[in-house]
Write a protein that binds this DNA or RNA. Structure first.
Length: 258
DNA sequence: ATGGTAGACGCTCTA
């Protein structure tokens, strides 16, 4: 099945572009979205149902919010993770589809520097997420954790490593947190399939970096051994990101076939 | 050079 992770930067302003993309470009089975920026009642559930998707939403006013749309039925929707950090904002949603556990996460951005309380929250969020996945691994073999992780891991994941020195999204401490999460037993599907391929998932609106491919790889599909074994193809789809109208998200979807 | 754009919301915050 084709699984996509896509930070949509407001679903209400993006729904038209996304449905066009879903119809014309990619038969996506499971679409995981972050930053839907609306409450559950405001989510265009019926639009996705018309496209033959089952819908699961963990919405939040103004900021954050995540959702999963699936062509295949899921038996449960998890939006509470019994953790004060993970549950503070609406940043996670989990569904079980066939023998796969799909977790969709929007990791905190972290604001401007390491001393910012939002950055501290990002560090704590990584610790809590790592503990959660570590525990979940005892009960499920095939786990796919996708989303916006707001960290680029290595120099090939940013267009100019020198420029990103000391910038949130490329700091040593947050890279270490993401590596620790991977060390629980998750594969960075894209990077393991393509060890040296440049493929960004985000380009800054402000510098119009998309036109010079000045971006970062901050969206990931992470999978346990058993799920990664079945990962046939994976790549970034820049079709929506290159539209001039309607305005695209600043992220592009990462699509993996598992 | 420390900007720039975009979105939700409401006289600003977040990314």
């Amino acid at each position: 099945m084709k699984i996509a992770t896509f930070n949509v930067n407001s679903i209400r302003s993006r729904v038209e572009l996304i449905t066009t993309w879903l119809r014309d470009k990619n038969p996506i089975d499971i679409l995981c979205m972050q930053e839907i920026k609306c409450e559950n009642e405001q989510f265009p559930t019926q639009t996705f149902e018309k496209e033959k998707y089952f819908v699961a939403v963990n919405g939040q006013k103004r900021y954050n919010g995540v959702a999963i749309c699936s062509k295949l039925p899921f038996d449960s929707i998890k939006i509470k993770f019994d953790d004060p950090i993970l549950d503070l904002q609406k940043r996670m949603i989990e569904v079980h589809v066939e023998d796969l556990v799909i977790i969709n996460v929007y990791v905190p951005h972290g604001s401007s520097d390491e001393t910012d309380e939002k950055y501290i929250f990002k560090m704590k969020f990584y610790d809590a997420l790592t503990s959660y996945v570590n525990e979940l691994k005892n009960r499920y073999k095939k786990i796919v954790l996708v989303g916006d992780f707001n960290v680029a891991l290595t120099d090939i994941d940013v267009y100019n490593p020198r420029l990103f020195q000391g910038k949130v999204g490329f700091l040593k401490s947050e890279k270490r947190k993401l590596k620790t999460l991977l060390d629980v037993g998750l594969h960075d599907c894209f990077r393991e399939k393509y060890p040296s391929l440049k493929a960004y998932t985000w380009w800054d609106y402000r510098t119009a970096g998309i036109w010079r491919d000045e971006g970062m790889r901050i969206d990931y599909m992470l999978a346990t051994d058993e799920a990664f074994k079945e990962c046939k193809e994976i790549g970034v789809d820049i079709w929506t990101r290159k539209r001039k109208s309607p305005t695209p998200s600043d992220h592009a979807p990462l699509i993996g076939e598992i």
